[in-house]
């Protein structure tokens, strides 16, 4: 799958790179869906000997290929929240020298980054690579509810039902973009939803 080039944006919007191998005491990979391809591209036998892969397939067929890399530890689970305790424990028990690699959707990378920051890892020390869906994890600024995998602008908050426009303003702590009511000044005047990058 080809990589998406995000348009230039404001300073709070995250910028993703390309995973590169680094020397480390241990290597933790957290990925979803097509993020698996970024792991397959960067993995070396030396890294995998000290490697731990946590993968959320989201219906994609990469699990066998990742297992074939022969990491020291491997987990595949249905959702990020199913994997969350395992991620938190791994980060809490991590020693100096852990290298962290995140790949896949923005929602997955953002949540894993927030967990790593909670564990005391500065976000600048974390490698990220976007692959697959460009859908966003959105927080409704009004009800604070999170709507996952939003790919249109505007969209309907899955909690309070307000019509929200998709901002580029992003909170690393919440791992979410901000959604704000689009028709507050003209109730019912909601433009037809378009793809976020259309």
């Amino acid at each position: 799958m080809s990589k998406f080039t995000f348009p230039e944006s404001i300073k709070s919007r995250p910028i993703y790179g390309t995973l590169a191998p680094r020397a480390g005491a241990a290597h933790l990979f957290i990925a979803d869906a097509h993020g698996a391809e970024a792991i397959l591209d960067v993995a070396t036998p030396e890294m995998m000997a000290k490697g731990h892969i946590i993968y959320i397939p989201k219906g994609e067929q990469f699990e066998d290929k990742l297992r074939a890399l022969n990491p020291a530890s491997f987990y595949a689970g249905p959702t990020y929240s199913a994997a969350e305790r395992r991620i938190q424990q791994t980060l809490a028990q991590a020693k100096m020298g852990l290298q962290l690699y995140l790949a896949g959707t923005e929602g997955l990378m953002g949540q894993a980054e927030a967990a790593a920051m909670q564990a005391g890892i500065p976000h600048t020390a974390i490698q990220t690579e976007h692959r697959g869906s460009t859908a966003r994890r959105m927080q409704c600024v009004h009800c604070k509810g999170i709507t996952e995998d939003v790919d249109t602008d505007p969209f309907v908050c899955s909690h309070c039902g307000l019509n929200l426009f998709v901002r580029d303003h992003y909170s690393r702590r919440l791992a979410a973009y901000q959604g704000v009511c689009i028709d507050a000044e003209d109730p019912g005047n909601v433009p037809a939803p378009k793809g976020i990058y259309e």
């Binding site: 404001i10 300073k11 709070s12 901002r167 580029d168 303003h169 909170s171 690393r172 702590r173 901000q178």
Partner: peptide
């Protein structure tokens, strides 16, 4: 929103301001 912006650095919390950057 403080709840959204808490933890951001100076450039990040001013990100939505037009022209000034």
């Amino acid at each position: 929103s403080l709840d959204f912006d808490i933890g951001m650095n100076f450039f990040e919390w001013h990100a939505p301001v037009p022209l000034a950057h």
